[in-house]
C-alpha cells in the first residue's frame, strides 16, 4: 500500500450518500468494506464479510440498529458483536461471534476509515470551509494519475483545489484497486445550483480524460 501524507485515512463515501439505516460496499486497495449508518446517524466500517458464512455484509440491510446479513439474517450491533440469530431466536450469541470494525471518522462531508495506523484526519485547510456535496464517481484509472491531473497537493488523497474551476473545491480520491478509484467532489458554501452542475460536469470531464489516458474508453451504444 502506497504511503501517503494523509496517514492511514481513506475517504470512502460522501456523508450525504450514506443515509441512516443503509449500507453500501466500498473497496480500499482491494480490501472490501461494508459501510453503514445506524439509526442514530453513526457511521460504521467493517470488513465486508459475515463471520458466519463469509457472505458480503454490504448486500445486507440495517434493522433495529444492527447490520443484518442477507444470507441467514444474523445481525451485528454497532460494536460488531452478533446480537441476533433468526434460526435460534432465544440464543444469546457468544461475544466471539463478531464482525471486524475499522476506525471511522466523519469530517469535511466525508466518511473516512483508517486501514493502517492513523494520525489525525487530513484536511486542516478543508476545516476552514463548509462543503456542499456535488457527487462521487468511479474512474477506471489509477488514483495517483487522477490526483496529478486535478492538481491535488503532492502525496495527498484529499485536498482543496483552486485550479481548473471557479472557486474552491474539496476533492478526495479513494484508491479502489490498481487501476480504479472513486473521486468525491464538494463545493465550498455558498454555491448556486448552476455551480454545482458545472462541478459535476467537470468531474465527468476529469473521468473521461483520465480513462482516455488509461486506455479505458466507455462508449454507450457502441455495441450492437
Amino acid at each position: 500500500m502506497g504511503m501517503s501524507r494523509d496517514g492511514g485515512w481513506y475517504p470512502l463515501v460522501l456523508s450525504a450518500d450514506l443515509e441512516p439505516c443503509t449500507v453500501v460496499g466500498s473497496v480500499v486497495h482491494g480490501r472490501e468494506l461494508a459501510v453503514w449508518r445506524d439509526g442514530q446517524g453513526q457511521a460504521h466500517v467493517w470488513d465486508d464479510r459475515c463471520p458466519h458464512r463469509g457472505m458480503r455484509l454490504s448486500l445486507g440491510f440495517v434493522r433495529e440498529g444492527a447490520l443484518a446479513c442477507l444470507y441467514h439474517g444474523w445481525r451485528f450491533g454497532a460494536d460488531g458483536r452478533c446480537v441476533h440469530i433468526p434460526a435460534h431466536p432465544d440464543l444469546s450469541p457468544p461475544g466471539t461471534i463478531r464482525a471486524a470494525p475499522l476506525r471511522v471518522a466523519e469530517g469535511h462531508g466525508l466518511v473516512w476509515a483508517s486501514v493502517q495506523d492513523a494520525g489525525p484526519l487530513p484536511g486542516d485547510e478543508a476545516a476552514k470551509e463548509t462543503w456542499l456535496p456535488v457527487r462521487s464517481l468511479r474512474i477506471e484509472a489509477p488514483w495517483d494519475d487522477v490526483a496529478r491531473a486535478i492538481g491535488m497537493p503532492d502525496g495527498h488523497r484529499a485536498g482543496v483545489l483552486d485550479r481548473d474551476v471557479e472557486g474552491r473545491v474539496l476533492a478526495a480520491l479513494l484508491p479502489v484497486g490498481a487501476g480504479a478509484c472513486m473521486l468525491h467532489v464538494q463545493a465550498a458554501a455558498p454555491a448556486e445550483v448552476e455551480r454545482l452542475h458545472d462541478l459535476a460536469d467537470w468531474a465527468q470531464d476529469v473521468r473521461a480524460r483520465a480513462e482516455e489516458r488509461a486506455g479505458q474508453v466507455f462508449l454507450a451504444g457502441s455495441v450492437a
Partner: peptide
C-alpha cells in the same frame, strides 16, 4: 461490458445532476 457500463453511467450522471436541483 464497457457499453453496458457506459449506459449505466448515463443514468447515474443524469440522476447525480437531478439530485443537485
Amino acid at each position: 461490458r464497457r457499453a453496458a457500463v457506459a449506459a449505466l453511467r448515463i443514468v447515474e450522471d443524469h440522476l447525480a445532476h437531478r439530485r443537485l436541483e
